[in-house]
Simulated assay, not measured.
Amino acid sequence: MPLVMTQPISITVNGDTRRTEAATIAALVRELGLKPEKVAVEHNGEIAPRSTLEDVALTDGDQLEIVHFVGGG
Rank of each mutant, 00 (worst) to 15 (best):
M1N: 05
L3C: 01
L3F: 12
L3W: 02
L3R: 06
V4P: 05
V4L: 12
V4T: 14
M5C: 00
M5N: 10
M5I: 14
T6D: 07
Q7P: 01
P8W: 09
P8K: 06
P8M: 02
I9A: 09
I9C: 05
I9S: 07
S10Q: 12
S10N: 14
I11A: 07
I11Y: 05
I11G: 03
I11M: 08
T12S: 08
V13K: 13
N14F: 13
G15A: 05
G15L: 08
G15R: 03
D16T: 14
D16Q: 15
D16G: 04
T17V: 15
T17W: 10
T17H: 10
T17R: 14
R18W: 12
R19A: 15
R19I: 09
E21S: 13
E21Y: 05
A23D: 14
A23R: 07
A23N: 11
A23T: 13
A23M: 02
T24L: 02
T24A: 09
T24C: 13
I25S: 03
I25Y: 05
I25L: 13
A26W: 02
A26P: 06
A27S: 14
A27N: 01
L28H: 09
V29A: 03
R30F: 08
R30L: 13
E31P: 00
E31N: 12
L32H: 14
L32G: 09
L32Q: 15
G33V: 06
L34V: 04
L34Q: 01
L34Y: 13
K35P: 04
P36C: 00
P36I: 05
E37G: 06
E37M: 00
E37Q: 15
K38V: 06
K38N: 12
V39D: 00
V39E: 00
A40P: 10
A40M: 15
V41E: 04
V41A: 01
E42W: 02
H43Y: 15
H43V: 11
N44C: 05
N44M: 06
G45R: 01
E46I: 09
E46N: 10
E46F: 08
A48Q: 03
A48P: 02
A48H: 00
P49L: 04
P49S: 06
P49I: 05
R50T: 02
R50L: 04
S51R: 01
S51M: 00
T52A: 04
T52R: 00
L53Q: 03
L53S: 13
L53H: 13
L53Y: 04
E54G: 03
E54P: 00
E54M: 07
D55F: 06
D55E: 11
V56I: 15
V56D: 01
L58P: 03
D60R: 04
D60G: 12
G61E: 13
G61T: 10
G61L: 13
D62Y: 08
D62F: 08
D62P: 04
D62L: 03
D62T: 08
Q63F: 01
Q63K: 08
Q63Y: 09
L64A: 10
L64W: 02
L64S: 07
E65D: 14
E65S: 12
E65M: 07
I66D: 00
I66F: 11
I66T: 11
V67A: 12
V67M: 10
H68M: 03
H68V: 00
F69Q: 14
V70T: 07
V70W: 06
G71D: 12
G71M: 11
G72M: 06
G72P: 01
G72Q: 03
G73Y: 03
G73P: 02
